[in-house]
Protein backbone atom coordinates (compact mmCIF):
# COMPACT_ATOMS: atom_id res chain seq x y z
CA UNK A 1 0.00 0.00 0.00
CA UNK A 2 2.65 2.50 1.08
CA UNK A 3 4.70 2.27 -2.10
CA UNK A 4 1.51 3.05 -4.00
CA UNK A 5 1.48 6.47 -2.33
CA UNK A 6 4.43 7.62 -4.44
CA UNK A 7 1.91 8.03 -7.27
CA UNK A 8 0.04 11.28 -7.23
CA UNK A 9 -3.16 9.62 -8.40
CA UNK A 10 -3.08 7.32 -5.38
CA UNK A 11 -2.53 10.21 -3.00
CA UNK A 12 -5.43 12.01 -4.64
CA UNK A 13 -7.57 8.90 -4.47
CA UNK A 14 -6.90 8.50 -0.76
CA UNK A 15 -7.57 12.17 -0.09
CA UNK A 16 -10.80 11.95 -2.10
CA UNK A 17 -11.80 8.88 -0.10
CA UNK A 18 -11.39 10.71 3.19
CA UNK A 19 -13.06 13.91 1.99
CA UNK A 20 -16.02 12.10 0.49
CA UNK A 21 -16.43 10.02 3.65
CA UNK A 22 -16.96 13.11 5.79
CA UNK A 23 -20.03 14.29 3.88
CA UNK A 24 -21.10 10.76 3.16
CA UNK A 25 -21.13 9.79 6.85
CA UNK A 26 -23.10 12.86 7.90
CA UNK A 27 -25.58 12.97 5.04
CA UNK A 28 -25.91 9.19 4.98
CA UNK A 29 -27.17 9.30 8.56
CA UNK A 30 -29.71 12.01 7.72
CA UNK A 31 -30.80 10.05 4.64
CA UNK A 32 -31.30 6.87 6.65
CA UNK A 33 -33.09 8.37 9.65
CA UNK A 34 -35.33 10.51 7.44
CA UNK A 35 -36.00 7.54 5.16
CA UNK A 36 -35.06 9.26 1.94
CA UNK A 37 -32.71 6.55 0.64
CA UNK A 38 -34.99 6.10 -2.36
CA UNK A 39 -34.70 9.79 -3.20
CA UNK A 40 -30.91 9.73 -2.88
CA UNK A 41 -30.77 6.76 -5.26
CA UNK A 42 -33.00 8.71 -7.62
CA UNK A 43 -30.76 11.76 -7.41
CA UNK A 44 -27.68 9.66 -8.18
CA UNK A 45 -29.13 8.22 -11.36
CA UNK A 46 -31.02 11.31 -12.50
CA UNK A 47 -27.85 13.38 -12.18
CA UNK A 48 -26.56 11.58 -15.24
CA UNK A 49 -28.89 13.89 -17.16
CA UNK A 50 -26.78 16.77 -15.91
CA UNK A 51 -23.60 15.08 -17.10
CA UNK A 52 -25.12 14.66 -20.58
CA UNK A 53 -26.29 18.27 -20.70
CA UNK A 54 -22.88 19.49 -19.54
CA UNK A 55 -21.01 17.47 -22.15
CA UNK A 56 -23.40 18.68 -24.86
CA UNK A 57 -23.04 22.32 -23.91
CA UNK A 58 -19.32 22.10 -23.21
CA UNK A 59 -19.26 22.84 -19.47
CA UNK A 60 -17.54 20.76 -16.80
CA UNK A 61 -19.48 17.51 -16.29
CA UNK A 62 -19.40 17.83 -12.52
CA UNK A 63 -20.91 21.29 -12.57
CA UNK A 64 -23.70 19.96 -14.77
CA UNK A 65 -24.21 16.94 -12.54
CA UNK A 66 -24.33 19.04 -9.37
CA UNK A 67 -26.84 21.52 -10.79
CA UNK A 68 -29.05 18.85 -12.27
CA UNK A 69 -28.85 16.74 -9.10
CA UNK A 70 -30.03 19.63 -6.93
CA UNK A 71 -32.97 20.38 -9.23
CA UNK A 72 -34.00 16.72 -9.41
CA UNK A 73 -33.51 16.24 -5.67
CA UNK A 74 -35.74 19.18 -4.81
CA UNK A 75 -38.32 18.05 -7.35
CA UNK A 76 -38.41 14.54 -5.90
CA UNK A 77 -38.64 15.92 -2.39
CA UNK A 78 -41.46 18.23 -3.36
CA UNK A 79 -43.40 15.41 -5.03
CA UNK A 80 -42.98 13.11 -2.05
CA UNK A 81 -44.43 15.82 0.17
CA UNK A 82 -47.36 16.42 -2.17
CA UNK A 83 -48.18 12.82 -3.06
CA UNK A 84 -47.03 10.58 -0.27
CA UNK A 85 -48.72 7.44 -1.64
CA UNK A 86 -47.28 7.62 -5.12
CA UNK A 87 -43.92 9.17 -4.37
CA UNK A 88 -41.84 6.03 -4.98
CA UNK A 89 -43.32 5.54 -8.45
CA UNK A 90 -42.70 9.18 -9.33
CA UNK A 91 -39.13 9.04 -7.99
CA UNK A 92 -38.57 5.90 -10.04
CA UNK A 93 -39.80 7.69 -13.14
CA UNK A 94 -37.58 10.75 -12.59
CA UNK A 95 -34.68 8.39 -11.86
CA UNK A 96 -35.02 6.83 -15.33
CA UNK A 97 -35.92 10.05 -17.15
CA UNK A 98 -32.77 11.74 -15.85
CA UNK A 99 -30.59 8.90 -17.07
CA UNK A 100 -32.30 8.84 -20.46
CA UNK A 101 -31.76 12.58 -20.89
CA UNK A 102 -28.07 12.06 -20.16
CA UNK A 103 -27.68 9.24 -22.64
CA UNK A 104 -29.46 11.13 -25.43
CA UNK A 105 -27.46 14.31 -24.95
CA UNK A 106 -24.23 12.35 -25.04
CA UNK A 107 -25.44 10.72 -28.29
CA UNK A 108 -26.05 14.20 -29.67
CA UNK A 109 -22.64 15.50 -28.62
CA UNK A 110 -20.04 15.58 -31.37
CA UNK A 111 -17.42 12.85 -31.06
CA UNK A 112 -17.32 10.17 -28.41
CA UNK A 113 -15.55 11.77 -25.53
CA UNK A 114 -17.31 10.50 -22.44
CA UNK A 115 -16.51 7.30 -20.68
CA UNK A 116 -19.95 6.26 -19.47
CA UNK A 117 -18.43 3.52 -17.33
CA UNK A 118 -16.46 6.00 -15.26
CA UNK A 119 -19.71 7.64 -14.18
CA UNK A 120 -21.54 4.38 -13.63
CA UNK A 121 -18.81 2.78 -11.54
CA UNK A 122 -16.65 5.70 -10.43
CA UNK A 123 -13.12 6.78 -11.19
CA UNK A 124 -11.46 7.47 -7.89
CA UNK A 125 -8.03 6.95 -9.49
CA UNK A 126 -8.65 9.94 -11.75
CA UNK A 127 -9.49 12.62 -9.21
CA UNK A 128 -7.94 15.98 -10.03
CA UNK A 129 -6.90 18.83 -7.72
CA UNK A 130 -9.97 20.82 -8.73
CA UNK A 131 -12.27 18.01 -7.69
CA UNK A 132 -10.53 17.70 -4.35
CA UNK A 133 -11.25 21.38 -3.72
CA UNK A 134 -14.89 20.81 -4.71
CA UNK A 135 -15.08 17.95 -2.21
CA UNK A 136 -13.51 20.01 0.56
CA UNK A 137 -16.00 22.82 -0.07
CA UNK A 138 -18.95 20.44 0.17
CA UNK A 139 -17.52 18.98 3.39
CA UNK A 140 -17.19 22.38 4.99
CA UNK A 141 -20.72 23.26 3.87
CA UNK A 142 -22.14 19.99 5.20
CA UNK A 143 -20.31 20.19 8.52
CA UNK A 144 -21.28 23.82 9.08
CA UNK A 145 -24.92 23.14 8.30
CA UNK A 146 -25.15 20.13 10.59
CA UNK A 147 -23.38 21.86 13.47
CA UNK A 148 -25.57 24.92 13.09
CA UNK A 149 -28.89 23.08 12.86
CA UNK A 150 -28.05 19.98 14.87
CA UNK A 151 -30.88 20.31 17.36
CA UNK A 152 -33.38 21.06 14.61
CA UNK A 153 -32.25 18.13 12.45
CA UNK A 154 -32.44 15.85 15.47
CA UNK A 155 -35.99 16.99 16.26
CA UNK A 156 -37.29 16.74 12.71
CA UNK A 157 -35.67 13.36 12.11
CA UNK A 158 -37.00 11.86 15.30
CA UNK A 159 -40.43 13.46 15.61
CA UNK A 160 -41.37 15.60 12.64
CA UNK A 161 -44.77 16.52 13.97
CA UNK A 162 -43.40 17.73 17.28
CA UNK A 163 -40.67 19.67 15.52
CA UNK A 164 -43.34 21.39 13.45
CA UNK A 165 -45.42 22.21 16.50
CA UNK A 166 -42.44 23.82 18.21
CA UNK A 167 -41.85 26.05 15.22
CA UNK A 168 -38.90 24.28 13.59
CA UNK A 169 -39.00 25.13 9.85
CA UNK A 170 -39.31 21.46 8.94
CA UNK A 171 -39.99 22.02 5.24
CA UNK A 172 -37.04 24.33 4.70
CA UNK A 173 -34.68 22.00 6.54
CA UNK A 174 -35.96 19.03 4.55
CA UNK A 175 -35.06 20.80 1.31
CA UNK A 176 -31.72 21.80 2.79
CA UNK A 177 -30.98 18.14 3.53
CA UNK A 178 -31.98 17.25 -0.04
CA UNK A 179 -29.66 19.90 -1.46
CA UNK A 180 -26.73 18.66 0.60
CA UNK A 181 -27.63 15.09 -0.34
CA UNK A 182 -27.45 16.08 -4.02
CA UNK A 183 -23.98 17.57 -3.63
CA UNK A 184 -22.78 14.57 -1.63
CA UNK A 185 -24.18 12.18 -4.20
CA UNK A 186 -22.28 13.98 -6.97
CA UNK A 187 -19.04 13.62 -4.97
CA UNK A 188 -19.76 9.96 -4.38
CA UNK A 189 -20.29 9.38 -8.10
CA UNK A 190 -16.62 10.21 -8.60
CA UNK A 191 -15.59 7.62 -6.02
CA UNK A 192 -17.95 4.67 -6.47
CA UNK A 193 -20.09 5.60 -9.47
CA UNK A 194 -23.75 6.50 -9.61
CA UNK A 195 -24.96 2.91 -9.47
CA UNK A 196 -23.16 2.21 -6.19
CA UNK A 197 -23.73 5.55 -4.44
CA UNK A 198 -26.69 4.36 -2.43
CA UNK A 199 -24.64 1.57 -0.81
CA UNK A 200 -21.91 3.84 0.51
CA UNK A 201 -24.53 6.29 1.69
CA UNK A 202 -26.65 3.78 3.64
CA UNK A 203 -24.36 0.97 4.81
CA UNK A 204 -22.22 2.96 7.30
CA UNK A 205 -25.30 4.45 9.06
CA UNK A 206 -27.00 1.06 9.10
CA UNK A 207 -24.02 -0.41 10.96
CA UNK A 208 -23.40 2.56 13.26
CA UNK A 209 -26.97 2.84 14.51
CA UNK A 210 -26.42 -0.45 16.36
CA UNK A 211 -23.51 0.92 18.35
CA UNK A 212 -24.37 4.54 19.03
CA UNK A 213 -26.79 6.39 21.27
CA UNK A 214 -26.82 9.85 19.68
CA UNK A 215 -27.19 11.18 16.18
CA UNK A 216 -23.81 12.94 16.41
CA UNK A 217 -21.98 9.77 17.45
CA UNK A 218 -23.77 7.90 14.69
CA UNK A 219 -22.47 10.44 12.18
CA UNK A 220 -18.91 10.23 13.53
CA UNK A 221 -18.92 6.45 13.48
CA UNK A 222 -20.33 6.44 9.95
CA UNK A 223 -17.54 8.74 8.77
CA UNK A 224 -14.91 6.39 10.23
CA UNK A 225 -16.56 3.35 8.69
CA UNK A 226 -16.80 5.07 5.34
CA UNK A 227 -13.08 5.99 5.45
CA UNK A 228 -12.28 2.40 6.36
CA UNK A 229 -14.35 0.98 3.49
CA UNK A 230 -12.93 3.34 0.90
CA UNK A 231 -9.30 2.81 1.99
CA UNK A 232 -9.60 -0.94 2.26
CA UNK A 233 -11.45 -1.12 -1.04
CA UNK A 234 -8.75 0.96 -2.72
CA UNK A 235 -6.04 -1.28 -1.31
CA UNK A 236 -7.80 -4.39 -2.62
CA UNK A 237 -8.37 -2.85 -6.04
CA UNK A 238 -4.71 -1.78 -6.26
CA UNK A 239 -3.27 -5.11 -5.18
CA UNK A 240 -5.54 -7.36 -7.17
CA UNK A 241 -6.10 -5.01 -10.08
CA UNK A 242 -9.87 -4.85 -9.62
CA UNK A 243 -12.43 -2.07 -10.17
CA UNK A 244 -12.10 0.40 -7.31
CA UNK A 245 -15.79 1.32 -6.98
CA UNK A 246 -16.97 -2.27 -6.80
CA UNK A 247 -14.17 -3.22 -4.39
CA UNK A 248 -15.15 -0.42 -2.02
CA UNK A 249 -18.81 -1.41 -2.09
CA UNK A 250 -18.04 -5.09 -1.53
CA UNK A 251 -15.92 -4.23 1.51
CA UNK A 252 -18.87 -2.22 2.82
CA UNK A 253 -21.19 -5.08 1.93
CA UNK A 254 -19.06 -7.59 3.84
CA UNK A 255 -19.12 -5.33 6.89
CA UNK A 256 -22.88 -4.98 6.48
CA UNK A 257 -23.40 -8.75 6.70
CA UNK A 258 -20.88 -9.18 9.50
CA UNK A 259 -22.62 -6.54 11.61
CA UNK A 260 -25.93 -8.21 10.90
CA UNK A 261 -24.64 -11.56 12.15
CA UNK A 262 -23.05 -9.85 15.14
CA UNK A 263 -26.30 -8.09 15.95
CA UNK A 264 -28.30 -11.31 15.76
CA UNK A 265 -25.93 -13.08 18.13
CA UNK A 266 -26.03 -10.30 20.68
CA UNK A 267 -27.88 -11.21 23.88
Amino acid sequence: MWEALQFEFMRHALAAGVLVSISCGIIGVLVVVNRIAMISGGIAHASYGGIGLAVFSGIAPFVGAAGFAVVMGLLMGWISLKQKQRSDAVIGALWAIGMAIGILFIDLSPGYNVDLMSYLFGSILAVGKQELWFMLTIDVLTLATVILFYKEFLAMSYDEQFAEVTGVPVRALYFLVLTLTSFTVVMLIKVVGLILVIALLTIPPYISVQFTSTLGKMMGFSILLSILFVTLGLWISYNFNLSSGASIILVAGAAFFLSHIFQKNRP
Binding site: V33, F149, E152, L154, T166, V168, V209, T214
Partner: peptide, 20 residues
Protein backbone atom coordinates in the same frame (compact mmCIF):
# COMPACT_ATOMS: atom_id res chain seq x y z
CA UNK B 1 -33.29 5.97 16.56
CA UNK B 2 -30.09 7.13 18.28
CA UNK B 3 -31.44 9.61 20.81
CA UNK B 4 -30.94 9.76 24.56
CA UNK B 5 -33.51 10.50 27.23
CA UNK B 6 -31.87 13.85 27.90
CA UNK B 7 -31.84 14.86 24.24
CA UNK B 8 -35.54 14.05 23.96
CA UNK B 9 -36.45 16.03 27.08
CA UNK B 10 -34.53 19.13 26.03
CA UNK B 11 -36.27 18.99 22.66
CA UNK B 12 -39.20 20.57 24.49
CA UNK B 13 -37.09 23.73 24.73
CA UNK B 14 -37.19 24.18 20.96
CA UNK B 15 -40.12 26.53 21.43
CA UNK B 16 -37.81 28.91 23.29
CA UNK B 17 -34.54 28.22 21.48
CA UNK B 18 -33.45 30.22 18.46
CA UNK B 19 -32.93 28.56 15.11
CA UNK B 20 -29.30 27.63 14.57
Amino acid sequence: FPITVYELAIMGRLTHARLG
